[in-house]
């Protein structure tokens, strides 16, 4: 029970005002053709308000050089040596498919990029037995996160969170699941553009996750709901990015 309260408190508490510097802007991405092996190329983007070039390569869902991205990130103090830009970590780059960009590729110019390492949120093969999550098993909420204006599961991020949830649910045997989709529908001006998610995206996100849960756990009762308030949480898996936390689904296990 204590665990539920702690989890719930984390999900509803807004981010601290004393958090590290965050940036949010819209710009075209630039690909730097650094080569330190697979997936080592760099993604850069320039904040139009300040002219600062940021290294956004650590985003779990990376840009498409044909489209603008909404960048949301925390300014890191680590040197810009891998790619040649101020490093954002954590960072998100939501592709804006309604905003075409001229594709642009820079040469490596001496920057090595980053040698690929498996993200911390990765799923082990199905052949590997999952440890049974420890109890107690009581009401609990599992968040899953999305890119802006999107209900697509982010590889090695959303899928990992869902699998963690399903492992726990399989062990806990709750009576039912309530899957609530959230969308950030309140317009906010970002780089001169009023950006808001459509209201029906909340329900769409809920249905996407519900369908995946039906496939992972056939037979478990699932209800869906939608919330367009765009409320923030302080969940750790939003990586300290308040706007990421507003684009989520909550899987609530009820007993």
């Amino acid at each position: 029970m204590l665990r539920f309260f702690l989890t719930a408190a984390a999900l509803v508490a807004p981010f601290s005002a004393a958090a590290a510097e965050t940036v949010r802007f819209i710009a075209c991405p630039i690909y730097r053709d650094a080569d330190s092996g697979k997936k080592s190329g760099c993604w850069l983007s320039d904040d139009p308000a300040t002219g600062t070039r940021y290294d956004v390569s650590l985003s779990p869902h990376k840009p498409d050089w044909n489209y603008a991205v909404m960048v949301e990130g925390t300014v890191s103090a680590v040197p810009s040596t891998p790619c040649g830009g101020t490093v954002l970590d954590a960072v998100r780059t939501s592709r804006l498919y309604d905003t075409p960009c001229t594709r642009h590729m820079l040469p490596a110019e001496g920057f090595p990029g980053r040698r690929f390492v498996l993200p911390k949120r990765n799923i082990t093969p199905s052949s590997v037995a999952r440890p049974v999550p420890p109890g107690p098993y009581a009401e609990r909420v599992f968040p899953v996160y999305f890119e802006f204006d999107n209900d697509f599961l982010v590889y090695q991020y959303s899928d990992y969170l869902i699998e963690q949830a399903s492992n726990w649910i399989n062990a806990a045997h709750p009576k039912k699941l309530i899957v609530t989709g959230f969308a950030a529908t309140q317009p906010e001006v970002i780089s001169g553009r009023a950006m808001a998610e459509p209201a029906d995206l909340a329900a769409q996100r809920a249905e996407t996750i519900a369908e995946t849960l039906r496939r992972l756990m056939p037979g478990i009762p699932i209800e869906t709901a939608a919330d367009t308030s765009g409320s923030e949480t302080a969940d750790k898996d939003a990586d300290g990015l308040p706007d990421q936390s507003r684009r989520r689904v909550e899987i609530r296990a009820l007993f």
Binding site: Y31, D33, D35, G37, K38, K39, S40, G41, W43, S59, P60, H61, K62, P63, D64, W65, N66, M105, E147, F152, V154, Y155
Partner: peptide
């Protein structure tokens, strides 16, 4: 042998490897 994989649905979209993404045949 690495190369840039571009504009290939199923790799560069909707999954978020990036477009382009550097990888080899075994990707």
């Amino acid at each position: 042998k690495m190369f840039l994989i571009t504009d290939t649905a199923g790799i560069n979209s909707r999954i978020g490897f990036g477009n382009p993404v550097r990888n080899s045949c075994v990707f």
